[in-house]
């Protein structure tokens, strides 16, 4: 297209870039403030702290029992990833390959948990789980977290599966493979990139999932983000730097997985979850 050289166009472009720069600057400054504070000895009323130390990390590690919290977090995340894969991928396969009466209804059923915000369905869900004596334990947290992740895996996997040529499957069938063998020897290897991407996104989402874990977790089944919430909520009891150190631990945990996930997926996929 012809380059537009008018002043108004240039001003408009400048205003746009200024806005995006302003947003990113504030975002990065906010993160930097947390990191700086976590290494600060004393930081009151100045641009930078009086001195630097790493002792808040050991303090936070001991105070908030971070090793327990991290262990619980990884257990929960691992179970959620495993089960959402095991339930989601076969369902996605069936939906990608078969047209059956009521398919639209089934798709709507899987779309709903992604569209309804967690806190809205979390409260009735927590009530049911408490009645069944499942809430307050790890199984309750895992079950609650699976509610949005199973549909998420299904919706991410369907286009991946649709890309695979049905002739490959037909060939495997001709040679006598049953559905299970077909899955293990043909589909799984072909689908690995897609499954990996979907499960990594589930992993990132589960680490950051606050509402559902918060509503169903007991004292021994808190994940990192819920422990962080309680620490910030009870601010004043502990040193600010100690809470910030915990926040940095949380940030690092999340961002490592985000970086790994971004090697396999397009960043917009993290957002456009319900798009088909």
């Amino acid at each position: 297209m012809v380059e537009d050289k008018r002043l108004s166009t240039k001003l408009w472009a400048f205003a746009n870039w200024f806005l995006i720069g302003f947003f990113l600057l504030n975002l990065l400054a906010m993160i930097a403030a947390v990191v700086t504070s976590s290494f600060a000895t004393r930081w009151l009323g100045t641009w930078l702290p009086a001195g630097w130390t790493t002792r808040w990390y050991s303090a936070a590690w001991a105070e908030f029992q971070l090793h327990d919290v991290l262990f619980v977090t990884f257990q929960i995340v691992f179970l959620v990833v495993l089960f959402s894969g095991l339930i989601g991928v076969p369902a996605a396969y069936a939906l990608a390959r078969r047209d059956f009466p009521g398919k639209k209804l089934v798709m709507l059923l899987f779309l709903l948990p992604l569209l309804v915000p967690p806190i809205t369905f979390g409260i009735p869900l927590a009530t049911v789980l408490y009645r069944l004596n499942l809430a307050g334990s790890m199984s309750g947290v895992v079950l609650a977290n699976l509610v949005p992740t199973v549909p998420f895996v299904i919706l991410v996997m369907i286009p991946f599966i649709e890309q695979i040529d049905t002739k490959i499957e037909a060939a495997a069938r001709v040679f006598g493979a049953n559905t299970f063998k077909l899955f293990i020897h043909v589909l799984l290897p072909l689908l690995m990139p897609g499954i990996l991407a979907a499960l990594l996104l589930v992993l990132v989402r589960t680490i950051a999932m606050f509402e559902l874990t918060f509503l169903t977790a007991g004292p021994t089944s808190q994940t990192l983000v819920v422990a962080l919430y309680y620490a910030v909520f009870a601010a004043g009891v502990r040193a600010v730097q100690s809470i910030d150190a915990m926040a940095v631990v949380y940030m690092v945990t999340t961002l490592i997985w985000l970086v790994i996930a971004l090697r396999f997926v397009n960043p917009t996929q993290i957002v456009a979850r319900a798009k088909r």
Partner: peptide, 10 residues
Amino acid sequence: TLGTVLVAEG
């Protein structure tokens, strides 16, 4: 990815 809790804390 950081989520609302961390943004609030920051």
